[in-house]
Write a protein that binds this DNA or RNA. Structure first.
Length: 464
DNA sequence: CTACCTATGGGCGAATCGGC
DNA sequence: GCCGATTCGCCCATAGGTAG
């Protein structure tokens, strides 16, 4: 990460406002964390200077902030931002309330009440919607080290049939302590933290900021509901990516119009720090707000899945067979075996069953010792018309193993083994084969030869 | 020099079975 | 009854993806 000063220089030069910065700063070779002290000091220095400049430009009363009668410029008020002051200091707060019947994609926020009961499968305790605290940060970078500052902290919660979104924003690092003091009081009222990859990102960053600002490391110890991994369990292979924005679009029916990508948030904030124009931050507020609404939708989705029934009520049955199977496997892992079985049954009745879905189901049956069903699934798999491109001969190999070792039917085993061999021989001609591919080919030949030998000996002993 | 979780692959011993 | 081959289960190391 480059230092703030470098970034701001770059920003200034790229916005083209200052003629003396026509020469672009090279951005390579400066990816080193700036130590905290210099980072913060640089930040404070530059920013306070710029802020006062701006203040005196608007109404000429520089001392209003200190007197506590500070008025926010119209540009802030236009996006619903208000000044928030406590004993520690001042920061900005934007609050948006949604009514229970607000529709966000395919889900309605009111579903949270019912769905949150299902979320107890995560930690084994009964969960009420009013105990969930949704958190999403916009920060100056991706690191979780001390150099990364959450300049916007979005929280959302369910309260009295309303979904309330609060977004705290700091105009410069000096406002962070006041924001954290406010958040500390808010957070500790909740038992559950809801995030997307917040286990690795949002929460460690918050924790670091609390520690660094002298609030200690024990401000809050919630039970964590991080939906990244459940999302991956269910949607890997059926979605090209499991980023929240993609899951949202493909599975939650949410369409973002003119969304500011999260990756742009740091730049927009630096730009604001440099020129004190808050307008571009409107997009960041909006982005952060939708992230939290989507997190609520995800909570609804997984809550319904764990507590209710897929295909009934508000929760649609997945369309892709592999998604149905993976959903079942995840439910099984979460201790919902009966619900899983129902999904597996649905999957098996599907017409367009895919190879992967069949193999997943078969592998599960094999592990459980359910050979009858596993064999049926492998047999379905080898009947599938093979798709162009990647081939998967594992069903043939599994069947070859089953016929050789369980049934001692070497002739049938040989047929499957040779089909696998044929498949391996006909496909990998594109490009050089890897060591692994060569090893697999050698293994297939060995299997075929071994089976031929067994057949030969059996016939020989029979004949004589 | 992110950190976390999950899936994947390799390695190794146990268990099984056929061949001799 | 022993030996070698094969498969399976378990453990550990590694890779990939996501957060702004």
């Amino acid at each position: 990460m480059s230092s703030l000063r470098e970034r701001m220089n770059r920003l200034r030069s790229s916005t083209g406002g200052t003629p003396e910065s026509a020469v672009q700063q090279p951005s390579r070779g400066s990816d080193i964390e700036t130590p905290l002290e210099s980072y913060n000091e640089t930040n404070k220095e530059t920013n306070i200077e710029a802020y006062e400049l701006h203040d005196s430009h608007t109404d000429g009363t520089v001392s209003e902030a200190e007197a506590g009668t500070e008025q926010l410029p119209e540009s802030w008020l236009a996006m619903g931002v208000k000044l928030q002051t406590n004993e520690v200091g001042t920061f900005l707060l934007r609050e948006v309330k949604y009514s229970a019947d607000h529709q966000h994609g395919i889900h309605r926020l009111s579903e949270l009440e019912e769905a949150s009961k299902g979320l107890s499968a995560f930690h084994g305790e009964q969960i009420g919607a009013e105990h969930l605290l949704i958190l999403d940060l916009e920060t100056t970078g991706l690191g979780v080290g001390t150099g990364n500052v959450p300049f916007m902290v979005g929280i959302a919660y369910w309260q009295g049939q309303q979904f309330i979104v609060e977004q705290a924003l700091i105009r410069h690092p000096a406002e962070e302590r006041a924001m954290l003091a406010y958040l500390k009081e808010k957070l500790t009222a909740y038992a559950y933290l809801v995030t997307y990859n917040g286990r690795t990102f949002d929460w460690p960053v918050m924790l670091n900021r609390f520690i660094l600002n002298g609030f200690g490391s024990k401000v809050w110890a919630p039970l964590h509901l991080d939906f990244l991994h459940p999302a991956r369990s269910v949607w890997r292979n059926t979605l090209t990516s499991c980023r929240l924005s993609h899951v949202e679009e493909e599975r939650l029916g949410i369409e973002r119009v003119d969304d500011v990508p999260g990756s742009l948030a740091p730049q927009l904030y630096f730009q604001y720090l440099a020129d004190q124009n808050p307008e571009p931050l409107a997009g960041v507020f909006r982005h952060n707000e939708i992230d939290m609404l989507s997190l609520a939708s995800l909570a609804i989705r997984f809550g319904h899945l764990l507590g209710g029934e897929a295909g009934c009520g508000p929760l649609p049955m997945p369309e892709e067979p592999e998604e149905i199977v993976r959903t079942g496997l995840w439910l099984e892992k979460m201790g919902q075996a009966e619900k899983a079985e129902r999904l597996f049954a649905v999957a098996e009745q599907q017409q367009g069953m895919t190879l992967n879905a069949l193999l997943l189901l078969a592998a599960r049956d094999k592990k459980a010792g359910n050979w009858r069903r596993a064999v049926l699934l492998w047999q379905k798999a080898v009947m599938l018309p093979l798709k162009f491109g990647a081939s998967d001969d594992s069903a043939f190999i599994e069947l070859a193993m089953y016929y050789e070792h369980k049934l001692k039917d070497y002739e049938s085993a040989l047929l499957y083994a040779d089909e696998a061999l044929q498949m391996a021989l006909s496909h990998p001609l594109r490009g050089r084969q890897t060591a692994k591919q060569r090893a697999e080919l050698a293994e297939l030949r060995k299997r075929s030869l071994r089976l031929q030998g067994k057949i030969g000996r059996k016939l020989g002993s029979h004949g004589t």
